[in-house]
Design a protein around this nucleic acid. Structure first.
Lengths: 141, 141
DNA sequence: TTATGTGCAAAACATTTGCAGGAGT
DNA sequence: ACTCCTGCAAATGTTTTGCACATAA
């Protein structure tokens, strides 16, 4: 837990505040590029690199969570308590899913491996309502 | 399940056979680039694009599995039965973990969401033995 | 024979980084 | 003042794609 050492070095800049504010406003698990677009409406001159750097820093210090879910891009979440996600295989949208956290599987896992377990994540794959509706005319089965 | 329709179109080329053979030889969940390196030893003129295209096609038809785990690159696995993975947060290595498959959570999840559930994957985060050994001199706690 | 597949190279994305000037503490 | 931070742009890393030629069926 060396973020205690790091925090004093972390300055409170306008960019950081607004990135965190904008991320906190949504539940859509935006990608870095999407956060950039949101923030740019308030800070038109912010650089994409600044967004990436700060999302990464905030994730390291635990203020936000970086989701390494399916798809090509990483996603970010201002809700830091452990919860699971479902990703639409059609459109890539990521939603939370209200499933009780399976705390016990970390213990079970640690008995099965020589890794030191840090945690786990469960990602469901599915097709969202919107994509199912727009595909209705295609399905025969 | 339209792979029945697709299969007749899928030609059995040397490249495809060797990609599948090489992927089946290892349990290390290689990235596309790593598969390319393995295959190139036997087919030096194969293109990287061919490797990407075929890994993608084989994943779509269910012959192999595409792992969308943490890290920047996708990984591939010739073992298609459902099992879980653990990824080293230090070096990025991905291993299988022998945990009973939690079939029931798909049902629980489907009651909690309006997505049509296709499946789930559990990924553990941890630190592997090798990385812990090489970091011994750094830990104070 | 002919649709599908391949090698090659360029393009398209996503992310990271070097640097000179700017701003928090 | 002294660092750390930012904007900008270039570099890097990964994956996709266009196209002319090759090849499985």
């Amino acid at each position: 837990m060396d973020f205690i050492e790091q925090l004093p070095k972390m300055r409170l800049t306008t960019q950081r505040q607004i990135i965190l504010e904008e991320l906190s406003k949504v539940t859509s698990h935006p990608t870095a590029g999407e956060v950039y677009d949101m923030v740019r409406k308030r800070l038109p001159r912010i650089g994409l690199g600044t967004v990436y750097r700060n999302l990464e820093l905030m994730a390291e210090s635990g203020v936000i969570v970086k989701l390494e879910v399916g798809g090509t891009q990483k996603r970010f979440d201002a809700t830091t308590d452990l919860h699971y996600h479902i990703r639409c295989s059609e459109c890539g949208k990521v939603d939370d899913i209200e499933l009780p956290v399976q705390h016990e599987i970390d213990r079970i896992a640690s008995e099965e491996t020589d890794y030191q377990i840090l945690g786990h994540h469960i990602e469901f794959a599915g097709v969202c309502q919107t994509c199912r509706s727009s595909a209705e005319h295609l399905s025969i089965n």
